[in-house]
Every structure is written in structure tokens, then in C-alpha cells.
Design a binder for these strands. Sequence first.
RNA 1: GGAGAGAUGGCCGAGUGGUCGAAGGCACACCUUUGCUAAAGGUGCAGACCCCAAAAGGGUCUCGAGGGUUCGAAUCCCUCUCUCUCCGCCA
Length: 423
Amino acid sequence: MLDPKLLRESPELVRAAIAKKHLTIDLDAVTAIDSSWRAQLTEVEGLRSKQKAANNEMAALKKGSPEFMAKVQEMKAVSAEVKAKEEGFKALEEQWHAAMLSLPNLPHASVPDGRTPEENRVHATHGDPTATSTCAQPHWEIAGFERLVDFPRGAKVTGAGFPFLIGDGAKLSRSLLQFFLDEDVKAGYTEVSPPIFVNAASATATGQLPDKEGQMYETTPDRLYAVPTAEVPLTNFYRDEILDEAVLPVCRCAYTPCFRREAGSYGKDVRGLNRVHQFDKVELLKWVHPSSSYEELEKLRADAERLLQKLELPYRVLLMCGGDLGFAQSKKYDLEVWAAGQKRWLEVSSCSNFESFQARRAQIRFRNPESGKPELVHTLNGSGLAVPRVFAALLENNLQADGRVKLPAALVPYFGKEYLSFQ
RNA sequence: GGAGAGAUGGCCGAGUGGUCGAAGGCACACCUUUGCUAAAGGUGCAGACCCCAAAAGGGUCUCGAGGGUUCGAAUCCCUCUCUCUCCGCCA
């Protein structure tokens, strides 16, 4: 959510943001709702003020006296008027709120123009995609793959996109998680194990509700949502709280399984492990002072990149253009790992600065020691990292002629052996 | 799952229909005074929103959440959420 004052004082900034993100929003309509909301608010508050003044007078009068009874009669009319006005005002206020939520966050000046994913800027490329294994093939075609990752039985037991991981498959997944968490903790993040179901208030604060309701699994009868990412419970940890300035930045990491319905996905995107309904991910999250959020974004990105470097996987860093940035983000980098078998890049992390956009919605603030006033923190997050696509890239890039997969040295202590076998 | 008790400001806690955004205490900040590592006194100290060009100032809302009764609700009624105690069940 944007600061409503920004809309009033600098509507041209909001207009420019909408244009840069290539969204279609009737800003004039939003402005109109805002002014009538304010006009009605003033009116309703005036009436209430009248009521209050009368109350104080009546408190001094003798109960049941003629003056008192006259006042009661007089105020009955005012009371009815307030009730009538408030009804309309409440409806308008809901509209106002919805209109405010429809405005996107402002993109940072460094965000390149562009409409489509093709116009994202390649910020950096690490490693040589062409140097990877000559016998690379898409992971789902590797002989014996189904012995490690069983889709058909997952479909029988749960549904499409809920594979079983077995043997070395399960172990590789677990090794990656352990490796990620250890590295993240070394980088200064405090590990958290959060609830993996959240209530509607939390899902609303981080923006999954109301727009992306169809992307989450919802439980009956308690109306809890399976988390689509640890970002949701992690960010909501401090919802409605005022932090000490001295504790900033707060850096945390968390492993959770992530659940996504992925309604509307199709084709090559969903082959094998590229897109599944349940996957494991370690998320990095920071609550920072507004003055340092872009510095912190670079650090966050470097922290996520280091994981890929230690795994010796070729990857590239994309700086997302305005049109592909996302509604709530001010600036976003995607990390994409090279999958030699599919000969394509797979997104394994998305590192974003939300500035105060999420914090306003979630009311996460810190107290400015100079003014004594609460101010909104900036929030950032990024994956560090998502397991299945890293899993896929390791299989595809490191497949040997003998049909085994050689694991990177950094992972060997976690996996316990140098080679993964499909037997 | 059953029975009962409760939810008030950073914390503790008073307040059962009116002048209560809320006594008192603690904590915190500043000031004064006295002075052997502290005491006493004073002042301030919740958040959000609106009006105002801004400052000053003014107004409204918030006593777990939502709704209701009433001229008027922290206080009465209803629903929900959470916490605690006891019983039951169970990793």
C-alpha cells in the first residue's frame, strides 16, 4: 500500500509508476474516491463532535429534569442523522481502501524500462553455460530419474505436482536445505522455523489476499492457508509492532515447504521439477532502516548468489524491468540457474526491496529516536534458495558418462558421498 | 473435545452507563534540589486518521475483534478470537 498523502501531494509520481509497470489503473477515479471520502469523513466527524459536546452538557444536568429531557429529544435526531450518514460512509470507506490497495509500489529509479520478461536486463552472468556436461539431458529423461522422484505415485496419493522424493533424491533435497541454512546463518541470518499455515490477516498483510487467493491451498473448516512461501509467516512475525531502531536490520532465514496451486501454468514450464505444487525453499528476509534498504538489497542478492557459486552452478542475474517487476516491489533481481539438459535458465531466487509498501500494509514500524515517532521499516526478501530447480540443475549439469551425478565439493559433506546414483 | 476464568496504554493495575483516552504505580526522557555510587520533587510520555499552505491549533476514532441496545458504552447484550486453570485425549 502506498502512502495516501503521496497520491494527494504528488499524483504524477504515482501516475509515472503505473506507466512504468505497464498497469492500467484509473488514477483519476482513485483520486475522486479519495476526495469524497475525506469530505464525508469531515462531515461525520463534525456530527460526532456535536454529540460529544451534548454528552458533556447532559452529564452536568439533573437526570430526568425538563432540560435533560429536551436535550435527549434534540440528540435523538442527531443520533439518527449520524447513523444514516455513517452507513453511506462505511461503504465509501471500503471503496477507498480497495482503491488504495489497487495502487502499485513505485519502482526505483534504477529499474529499467520495459514491458515483457525479454526486456529484463542481464545484470551479470557467472560461470560458463556452454562448459557443462556433454551428456547433459533434461532431468526427467535421465535414466533412473523416476527412482529418485516419483511423480505417478505422488499423483495417486495426492495429485499432479506432488512428487515423492526417494533414496538419494530425498537425501539430495535434504542436503541442499541443510547446506543453504548453514550458509545463510553464517552470513548473519537467524534461523526461524515458522508455522506453515497462516490466517487470513497474515495473507492479507503480505498481499496474497485478496488478489492471489486462488494460488493458495485453503483448509476447511479453519480457513487457514498453506504458505506459498516462508515470506508470509516470516514477514508477519512483526506485524503491528513497533521495533527499536537499534535492532535494525533484522535478518532471518527460514526453511518451509511451499504450497502453490499454480493455476494457469502449462507447457515446458511444468515438466519434471520445474514447477510443482509443493516444494522446499529457504527464504531470506530483512527488516531494515529505510536509509539502507538498497545497500541491504545488494547484500541479500550477494548472499543468495554465493550459494550458487559454492554449488558451482552457472547462473545469471536479471534486473527486472518495470513491466516484469511485480506490483509490490520497488526493485527486484532474479537469479536464474543454467539447466544444461533443458538448455534454459530456471529461476531459483527473486530478491526484492519492497521499501515501505509491505510494512505499511502490515504496520511494521520502528521508533525514530530523534522525533520519538514511529516510522515504517523497509522489508526485503529473497530465496536462498528454492530446492527443486537447483536439484534439477545439479542433475542436468553434472551428469557423468557412467550415468551418475557428480556433486559439487561444497555439498559432499552434507550428502555424505561424491556421487549421486539413480540405482 | 468438556467446564470455568479472563483480555484496559511499554509493563502492572483501577474503573459496572455520562464531565474517561482512561486513576495510581513501574519503566523511560528531561529539569530542579540534595549529595559518598543513590534519594526526593517537578514536567513529559499510545497510536491512527481528518481539517489547516505550513507551524501553531482544532476535530474524530481506538479499553482483544466485530455487531447491537442507548441521547450517550471501557462499563449492558450477542457473535468471534486469543490466554489461563481443571478434566479428557494424544504425538
